[in-house]
Design a protein around this nucleic acid. Structure first.
Lengths: 236, 236
DNA sequence: GTATGACCAAAAATGCATATCTGGTCAAAT
DNA sequence: ATTTGACCAGATATGCATTTTTGGTCATAC
């Protein structure tokens, strides 16, 4: 989880981010002070400002780290899974990953209790982008033959965004002993989507995997560490 | 909308509820004062307390009225529609109705801006109940042969709750020019669910309509006007 | 070259006295 | 028998002075 290929942070940075993560998940962004983080990470407050310009940028860095750790689990699960190339296994594993990743979950559902003020700034942007990416993704998938030809990619993308959002949210509302097992529901949902919109043949499976890798690479380009805020470029 | 069969309110009560409805939708429960309502309904404040014990009970009555008006449109649409007995047309028309009914929408999505403090009291109860009702309903449907035998009614109910919730919520987040037409998505969703879980034959269509009527009657029994808060029983 | 924590200004929380608002009542008017 | 609106107590909002907290800095120590 820490020290993956795509984690550009030093060990100490990661310790600080670990502290920030656990505190923010517990107390929320607003109630988590920089001193708290420093204390829990066993560094001085000054040290934190050696790594990031502000609390905001520290949090930004935390978000990227978590997103990456989440994305990497997702990709590696897809690569390993027998149905990894089918259109909606992508969906299945991303949701299953969300289920096990409290921080991503808070991001995904725009949990105000955790993201606090920070949210109001980025607000709907996260979901919006996710939806837009979903549309592009599904269009690619359709070109590659992994999405049924008669399906409207925009509608399917919208539907997928909604289902994912709804599943996570409703799971928070309905008590566990009333609701069926969440992972089973996800599995069932992915199956259903696959039957409705997927193309089952070998070729599309391969095409699917191809696209997923492609999209991941593109995303990596877009969010290189330069976007991250190690304001002192470490080695000048 | 006012004066339906199942609306047990007098004309003046309805005028007051109309006022309350429009004010609450605009300013939210907390910021809507009883005096405001009285003024807009062209009655005195005292008159309002002739009909309901408290602001809370007035609002409770409003909720029931709106729920009924919504439910009645829903039922009548189902009765009229050619696919009215198919399992997921029920879903389609309920969501389409939601789309056109701001108050129900606020209830359904537990919109804090509108429901204010009132929400914290009933909180998750609304969604929970809806989910439980959904489970029972789908079990009945399955017994009657209108839900595919190999489907797990609990999972399907959960899925439907989630999709409905997600669709409405995500529609609020994604800008209209990016999102596909909402009603088209609903139509598509209902179709998909129908293909995945429905039974297409004539007999199940009839059974479906039968069940829907049955459930509606049961619900009417459960929420008779006595539950409503005309605290002075009008005629003793 | 690194790391620290006392220090600072700005912001947020607290306490409190005063003013306003609001749900609910009831004597009086119709 | 109805309906009203002035009236009330409790809740909420406002203004303001004081205290505490917090993000961020930097002279000093290692």
């Amino acid at each position: 989880m820490t020290g993956d290929n795509n984690n550009p942070n030093t060990e100490r940075e990661n310790r600080i981010l670990d502290a920030a993560s656990s505190l923010v998940l517990h107390y929320g962004y607003d109630k988590t002070t920089v001193s708290d983080i420093a204390h829990q990470a066993r560094v001085s407050k000054g040290a934190i400002y050696l790594h990031w310009k502000s609390k905001d940028e520290l949090f930004q860095a935390l978000i990227w780290r978590e997103v990456w750790s989440y994305a990497e689990t997702w990709i590696s699960q897809l690569e390993a899974a027998p149905d990894g190339g089918s259109l909606f296994s992508m969906y299945k594993y991303s949701l299953a990953g969300l289920h096990a990743h409290p921080f991503m979950r808070a991001l995904f559902t725009r949990d105000r209790r955790i993201l606090g003020d920070f949210l109001t700034r980025q607000e709907a942007e996260l979901i919006r982008q996710k939806f837009i990416m979903g549309k592009d993704f599904l269009r690619l998938m359709q070109q590659a033959g992994a999405l049924r030809e008669d399906a409207d990619p925009d509608v399917v993308a919208y539907l997928m965004s909604s289902i994912a959002y709804g599943l996570v949210k409703v799971d928070e509302i309905v008590s566990p002993d009333e609701a069926p097992d969440f992972l089973r529901v996800i599995e069932e949902t992915a199956d259903m989507l696959n039957r409705a919109y997927g193309t089952p043949d070998e070729a599309s499976q391969a095409a699917g995997k191809q696209i997923i890798r492609q999209v991941t690479e593109a995303a990596k380009m877009q969010f290189t560490p330069s976007q991250q805020s190690n304001h002192e470029q470490k080695k000048e």
